[in-house]
């Protein structure tokens, strides 16, 4: 069964990407990514550039509205996602618990089967 592990990071975690803590930050994430590959469950995913690089496009009827910045106006921001192929939702939760989010959140969602 495939699940998306959707990573929401805190502002302080996201700030580590461009700070002296960057090497430790990336080491933890790449170790997590590698552990998934080695366990044979990695099935895709991507890390995202910081929320400040986002644009939000809204089309309502004929009106188009483009804004700078991410969609969700929350403290935690989407940082990336992983797709894992695991036996069940419990195992997906276990992998989610291993994500080095430090106070952030991992949402675990089954993928639709097409």
């Amino acid at each position: 069964m495939k699940f998306a592990l959707i990573i929401y990071e805190t502002p302080s975690q996201l700030a580590k990407r461009s700070s002296p803590d960057a090497p430790a930050y990336w080491a933890a994430w790449s170790a997590y990514n590698e552990a998934m590959k080695s366990a044979g469950i990695a099935a895709g995913g991507a890390g995202l550039q910081p929320p400040s690089t986002a644009t939000t496009v809204r089309v309502t009827g004929d009106a188009r509205h483009v804004q700078d910045g991410p969609y969700a106006d929350t403290k935690e921001q989407l940082g990336g996602f992983f797709i894992v192929d695991v036996p069940d939702h419990d195992v997906a939760n276990q992998w989610a618990a291993r994500a080095p989010v430090h106070g952030g959140v991992v949402e675990v969602r089954p993928l639709m089967t097409m």
């Binding site: 080491a27 170790a31 590698e34 552990a35 080695s38 618990a97 291993r98």
Partner: peptide, 21 residues
């Protein structure tokens, strides 16, 4: 070490192993 770090679900242990690495 990298594999153990990636499988850790406690920050204290992750940080400890990162130092070892």
């Amino acid at each position: 070490y990298r594999r153990a770090i990636g499988l850790s679900d406690a920050q204290a242990i992750r940080a400890y192993l990162l130092e070892k690495l």
